[in-house]
Computed example of a mutant assay.
Amino acid sequence: MLYIGNHTSSSKGYAAMGWQMLKNGGNTFAFFTRNPRGGKAKEIDPSDVEKFLELARENEFGKLVAHAPYTMNCCAAKENLRDFARETMSDDLKRMEYTPGNYYNFHPGSHVGQGAETGIKKISEILNEVLTREQSTTVLLETMSGKGSEVGRNFQELRQIIDRVECKEKLGICLDTCHVWDGGYDIVNDLDGVLKEFDQVIGLERLKAIHLNDSMNGLGSHKDRHARIGEGEIGLEALLRVINHPAVRGIPFILETPNDDEGWAREIALLRNGYKEN
């Protein structure tokens, strides 16, 4: 089965997100756990969660991919910013238990001149503080495009973070097609090679979700500018090869393309049309 959906607004609650995704033709979705620029999270309504869980069961939804706010920088140079990251992730992981067994995705962060090695050390420190054996949520490190001082610009940096974390079984990877393309991984002409390298460095068993985005820029541009499906440098053909690759069967695909619900519905229909069940 193809699990596909888009990044949607969480302002109306879980049930509304689920209904909107069904309307768009999806059976999974991503949402920000709080304002993407930070701030206090919205109170969770248990009755709303129950309505969503019933809806998800009835419609065979795949795993949800919650997204941490962009302002959360686990490897910031300023300790007050790291305190915010630590507190936000800890709070978010408690809230995720309302919808158990799903994914919590975050950008590893920017080392802001401290160097990648220091950034990796600081990210793993926070993960060691907030991850617990008891949690049902898998935390996903996102592949990044390598702009500025981003950590996670290649598979090796993500592996180094994982190696430093004690609760490794609670960690996975969300691969963003735009980010890896912009980061220099040629998923257009050598998808098999990229996935083989991912397997050798990190392990395909840790690949839990894919952000399916086209890119406005060329291979290795390190820009991170998403484009609509089929309108960028990656192209529809290559993205169809991604969703049909046997190594990624059964994982959720999330659209983060610059669109509205009507546009996402068109993209979901387009991708479903190109998906081969076997």
Rank of each mutant, 00 (worst) to 15 (best):
L2P: 00
Y3R: 01
I4S: 01
N6A: 15
H7I: 01
A16N: 03
M17C: 15
Q20R: 13
M21D: 07
G26P: 01
G26K: 05
I44G: 05
I44A: 09
D48H: 03
L55E: 09
R57H: 13
L64A: 01
V65N: 06
A66V: 02
A77P: 03
N80G: 07
L81A: 15
F84E: 13
R86Q: 11
M89N: 04
S90T: 10
D91F: 00
D92A: 14
D92F: 01
K94V: 15
T99H: 07
G101T: 09
G101N: 07
Y104E: 05
H107S: 04
G109P: 01
G113L: 07
G115A: 09
E117G: 03
T118I: 15
T118C: 09
E125C: 01
I126G: 02
T132E: 01
R133H: 13
S136Q: 12
T137E: 05
V139Y: 02
L140D: 02
L141H: 03
L141F: 05
T143L: 06
E150A: 15
E150R: 06
E150M: 12
V151F: 00
Q156D: 13
E157H: 02
R164S: 11
R164Y: 11
E166Q: 14
E169Y: 01
L171C: 04
G172F: 02
D176V: 06
H179I: 10
W181H: 15
G183I: 03
D186S: 08
N189R: 13
D190E: 12
G193R: 07
Q200V: 06
V201L: 11
G203P: 06
L204E: 05
H211Q: 08
L212D: 06
L212E: 08
L212M: 09
S215Q: 04
M216P: 03
L219S: 10
G220W: 10
I234N: 02
L236F: 15
L240K: 12
V242N: 09
V242T: 09
V248M: 14
R249Q: 14
R249C: 01
P252L: 10
L255Y: 04
D261P: 13
E262M: 11
G263E: 11
G263V: 10
W264K: 14
A265E: 14
I268E: 10
I268C: 08
L270K: 13
R272L: 12
R272F: 05
G274N: 05
E277A: 13
